[in-house]
Design a protein around this nucleic acid. Sequence first.
DNA 1: ACGCAACTGTTGTAAATGCAATTTTTTTGC
DNA 2: GCAAAAAAATTGCATTTACAACAGTTGCGT
Lengths: 176, 176
Amino acid sequence: MPEPAARLDLDDYLPYLINRVGSIMALRFGEDVLAQFGLSIAMWRVLAALSSHGAQRHTDLAGLTSIEVSTLSRIVTRLVRMGLVVRAPSKTSGREIALALSDRGRRLVDRLIPLGRRYEEIASAGLSKQENAVLRRALRRMYRNLIDAEPMAVNDRTGSPDAAIRTASRPETPTI
Amino acid sequence: MPEPAARLDLDDYLPYLINRVGSIMALRFGEDVLAQFGLSIAMWRVLAALSSHGAQRHTDLAGLTSIEVSTLSRIVTRLVRMGLVVRAPSKTSGREIALALSDRGRRLVDRLIPLGRRYEEIASAGLSKQENAVLRRALRRMYRNLIDAEPMAVNDRTGSPDAAIRTASRPETPTI
DNA sequence: ACGCAACTGTTGTAAATGCAATTTTTTTGC
DNA sequence: GCAAAAAAATTGCATTTACAACAGTTGCGT
């Protein structure tokens, strides 16, 4: 007997709700604001992370921004060429490179921040202070839950031979 | 007169929190579950939307999934080739519902739904029923707010009379 | 000191993505 | 009924992305 056909109501499914808000938010902010400055969403994320957390190594920045390292590498190259970011080889370690905002980059970000805040306001209009607080706490909690979660064994009937392998080879976990 | 250097605290910035949760959630579910079925996140979104909302036209499906129409077109082609989706030949005078799950597609989705639900649980573990409800309501409200919002750009002539409902159709790049 | 394993960042390459046509289908005005 | 207009769907093409391979560093155990 097949499953009782567990129905899925998208409009109450958390991953769907989150993706949908994220998509429209990026679309709007990207088109309405960032495009005018010649920036993509990814670039803005990099700049914002550097502004908020200060100078970072490449790998850490990837974790902060949820951008894959190789993708980030090219984005940073572009930001450097645009004069918004500077690369500073670490004195203590020959393999690490510290990334930081240039003066121009900092000035740009400082100009962008109020616009981002404004969009945040627009998005969360109508939410009470409590609701807003709950929302943020919930999102932070979800992130932690997912970071800490063990990979779920999803087996059909036959034992999958690679469960152990998958556990071992889990690269690319945005460990903040 | 320079701005008071409005500081941005990423860990309290809604777009950032949302993007971060969306990224990790997609990464985990995609790697742990979907990969074993030969599906990408985008494919799963399409299948889930068809399951939840029934047969859809191409454009509507794009709106539902926040996937750009041309991208969706190719994804659907692949799903059809995989035998999971059928393009209902739009009868000459009949209804114009073009895309639907095949029997095989429906069976697959029915098997995937509990797994998605499980991940939803994992993600929202530790949240009370009230918090969970607030979270969902907040996300729905944010979506509506952003759909309805006027572009706040500084230039261009005002009053875009195009009241047509805007649908998020961009990327696998959720938010900032 | 040595060698090997793990870390860091970059690059090669195939696949995915988004925009702008282009083609196909549906609606409309007469 | 039919041609024009509008809307929907697909495709061409340049850009972007992710995975893997690579090259250079560091750390650590022996």
